[in-house]
Structures are given as structure tokens and as C-alpha cells.
Amino acid sequence: MSKSIQAESPLHHAQLEQLIGQSSEGGITLHEHKLLGHLNLRGNAADTAFLAGVQEALGVALPTAPCSSAKSELAQIMWLAPDEWLVIVESGTEFDVEQKLRSYLTGHFAVSDISGAQTLLELSGKDIIGLMKKSTGYDLHLESFPVGKVIGTTFAKTGAHILRLDENTFQLVVRRSFSDYVWLWIQQSSQEYGLTIV
């Protein structure tokens, strides 16, 4: 694809770049990891050939335990369902990684490029638990939601997959068409804490 083509992330219209550095005091920090490669991977977790193929292609074992995640140099993998994973790769590598998966996998599997369908938001900060408690009914206590866990749940009136990166950092996978709503929600819900865009 031509380099002159300008890609626009789902939150392009919010012009987050222009808000960077506007406030540094916020209890909530937001960053959009935009334009990454997102692949939806389907397969049978009981199929050892499938597991081996994925490991070879992505350099890390597929997380098969419910709500688990894994990370390699190439990809971050989130468990979505017993037969479904989200593979997030660097921007622009999605086509190659998809081809690689297809070449390593046999039998019944599926890969769909959904890079345009969603974006990855990173929320952190000292007041992040307050914002998350307003947004989701899931128990955020570290015993129930440890670092590295990923859950598919409701986020305000839409849905999200939420990965905990550390005690006060969460990554949210949100759908493109709902991203403006999520952005409005985050602004509203962080009002009492202050919002910093990075």
C-alpha cells in the first residue's frame, strides 16, 4: 500500500495528539495504541498440531486457560473464548503474520484480519480503579483480576476486552464504531480525577 495513504485510527477525530501534554496532573492517563495489527484466530485448543503451529508462527504458546494472555516479541495474544484468540501485532505486520499463521496451520482453523475493526486503549493512573468501577461490573480486586488476565465484559453501555498490565494499568480493546462513545465515557468518568492524554 502506498506510503502516501493516510490511515485514520478509530479515534482520529478526537485529535488526541493535540491533547498530549495539556494536563499532567490527572489521576487517569489515556493512551491510544493506534493502528496496530489485530488478528482474530480460531481453532481447536485440544488439537496439538494447531497449538504447535501457532507456537511456531508466533513464538509463544497459545494461552488456553480461560481469560489468560501471552506475549512474544512478535505478538500479544488474548484468550477470548475456548476456541478464539485475539493476536495483536505491530502496525503493518498483520498481513505477514496472517500468512505465516496460514502456512503453519493445518486442519480446522480460521484467521480474520480485523485491524480496522478495533483499537487498543491503555488506561492507567492512581485513580484508575475508580474509573474502572464506574465502567464495568467485574471485580477488579487483584485476587479476582490478576495481572495478565483478560476478560470480555461490559464497559459502560458497550463491550470491551480488558487486559490488566499491572495493578493500575489496563488495556481495553474496543470496537471502532463504539470508540467515540468510549472516549466520551472516559472523559465524563474521569472528570473528578483529571484526565491526562499521553
Binding site: 481469560c67 475456548p82 467485574y138 470480555g152 465484559t153 461490559t154
Partner: peptide, 11 residues
Amino acid sequence: PYCEEMREEEE
């Protein structure tokens, strides 16, 4: 039974 945990009805 697939996520193997309790979740809120709204999910």
C-alpha cells in the same frame, strides 16, 4: 462454564 467464573447478568 467456558470462562469458568461468575459474571454479572448484564454480560
